[in-house]
Design a protein around this nucleic acid. Structure first.
Lengths: 177, 177
DNA sequence: GTCACTATTTATAACTC
DNA sequence: TGAGTTATAAATAGTGA
């Protein structure tokens, strides 16, 4: 950008190209450094000639810092990709979700069993005063479920009775869970 | 770089900072693009604000191209790559292990509760014949644990008795779980 | 090939709308 | 806000040593 307007095209002359390259790489890295300082954002620049085996030029020169920036980029990229393609979740994510699902089911089952157990204990003589307030809501809900079931069975039997036309209801056994 | 010489320091004013950032990012990416065309080399720029969740700005905009450049860089930097893999693995592994640990604890608790429940049901009149063979091993083990606990308590009491020198043993109450 | 030196182009800080 | 303008700083293409 000087003496002549640059034509944006591959520089055929090797000497000129290499000189330009050296100058512009220096400039690019300087700009990257300034951007980081002025705006306090993470910047990482990777430059290399894929046609030779030279070590890539990387900014920041601190490998740890570059590593941090790249891996965070990859993490974010993965995250956004997974956001976009919910169906194509990574293997690990699927696995973790499976385990979490299992865990949730178990927790629910666990809670139900605790209630069952509590009902049993009440029958065994445990005073209702000993039941923690925290548990009472779930206990009532468990009892409610049981009553609904019983209610439903009664209705079914009533229907059967109607169909049977005048035949008396059979004896109902209420089983303790 | 205009109107005034820029002082290379963090721009405190948020409006100014954001404007500068936008302009300079645009400039940096333009430079990166020119460098690639003029000298035919691989360039990748990653820019993001680590303080917010926005999608990182990456050049080249083709994500596949950016990934190719990054992965080739990583390949060239063997040490870096192996370090990263180990770090990432351990992080995910730690998380999975945590969840599995929680799951295992819950399963154990669950099984214990099932047994407690079963003992309660037996007291309520459930026939031992109705207990599934699969459960009997754990049931026996649960009863065994209970007996061991009782045994231990007896021994503790015996020790106390010895120390008390001649005083008779206090009455032991066996509590139903 | 690399440095130093400009003449220019380009980027951009401060400003306006 | 953000996009456009302008004056100036910065980058750099071409040049010679």
């Amino acid at each position: 950008m000087a003496r002549k307007k640059t034509k944006l095209a591959y520089i055929e002359n090797p000497t000129t190209r290499r000189t330009t390259c050296r100058k512009r790489v220096k400039g690019l890295l300087k700009k990257a450094g300034e951007l980081k300082i002025l705006c306090d954002i993470d910047v990482c620049v990777i430059i290399y000639n894929s046609k030779n085996d030279q070590i890539p030029v990387v900014w920041p020169s601190s490998e740890a810092e570059a590593k941090r920036i790249i891996s965070e980029y990859q993490l974010r990229s993965e995250f956004y990709q997974s956001q976009r393609k919910v169906d194509q979740k990574s293997y690990v994510q699927q696995y973790v979700n499976k385990v979490i699902e299992k865990l949730t089911k178990l927790q629910r089952k666990n809670r139900e069993m605790e209630m069952k157990n509590l009902i049993g204990q009440l029958f065994l003589g445990k005073a209702i005063e000993e039941v923690q307030p925290f548990d009472i809501v779930d206990l009532l809900s468990a009892i409610d479920d049981k009553l609904k079931m019983v209610d439903h069975q009664i209705n079914v039997l009533k229907e059967v009775q109607k169909v049977d036309d005048g035949v008396g209801p059979s004896q109902i056994h209420y089983m303790i869970p």
